[in-house]
Write a protein that binds this DNA or RNA. Sequence first.
DNA 1: TTTTGACATGTCGAAAATGACATGTCAGTT
DNA 2: AACTGACATGTCATTTTCGACATGTCAAAA
Lengths: 163, 163
Amino acid sequence: MSLRHAILGLLARKPSTGYELSGMFDASLRSAWHARHSQIYPELARLEEGGLVEVVDRGPRGSKTYALTDDGRTELRRWLVDDEPDRSQRNESAVRLFLNQLLDPADRRKVFTRDLEHVEAETAALLDLRERMDPDEPFAAQIELGLRINEVLATWLREQAER
Amino acid sequence: MSLRHAILGLLARKPSTGYELSGMFDASLRSAWHARHSQIYPELARLEEGGLVEVVDRGPRGSKTYALTDDGRTELRRWLVDDEPDRSQRNESAVRLFLNQLLDPADRRKVFTRDLEHVEAETAALLDLRERMDPDEPFAAQIELGLRINEVLATWLREQAER
DNA sequence: TTTTGACATGTCGAAAATGACATGTCAGTT
DNA sequence: AACTGACATGTCATTTTCGACATGTCAAAA
């Protein structure tokens, strides 16, 4: 289970409310993990009960800002460094890419075009993010990786669509 | 739910037993989807009940070979072409890549090295697969994409490790 | 001949994830 | 003063997934 560790990781970057975490799962982490608020709030409660996070602030509308405790920080480091990663993933787009060879040429081209549009939109979003980014953000490398992978994907999709 | 469609896709390539499908989820599809046999057998039963697959052969040890019906083929095409893909994925490695900036330099280098070893092993496996492959396999393109993405990953990891 | 290991299919309880339901606050507009 | 929409937190039934348990076959090696 790594929703737990994804939350710990996000809180390590910046103490946040459940609502804010929910936004991060839709934004920065959208291409790596997805979680609804109905999963996030109970998990925060469990993490708090386990002493890995604590409420450090209460704001308007009953909002609670959580931060890592020392135990939480220790557990996050342990997971990142010592636990063998689970490399199995669930990626519907990759399944589709794998299966598109089953389609006839017209259908295949249609699918490639749809995918290409999506990749181009994501590239644009990443470029925009990079521009508006704090210059000393330690995130530049991750964005760069995303851009490079999207470029490979776009090139491949164009090759396939032309074939 | 797309375990259903992953199974339909694999059966479209070649009629197979549940055991064989289980192997494919560990091999060709390992980097895109994962499913245990305890999920596959019940899903096959549901697909059969729904008339999307049928048993076309019974072999030794009670094995049952399933193949797509016409309805199954129609449903697979419909899903691939007409359904909007669910782009959200669950990728623990990507979460780790995203979070490694939280680590101190020594830990970070350790993690990058581990990841690099994994990428290189996967590249070797793909190269091997390409060599042993039927020259008219329609799979060459997918393998090529995997190799290109792994190359980008390896380059990025080396840059980060040296930093 | 026994034993090992790959082949082969299934069930079941527990855990995780989803989607719908439910409730309320606060700032800004109409 | 009423309304709208973003903010904010929660629960709950259903569906999906996982891991363990359970059972048995068949070929080849010891």
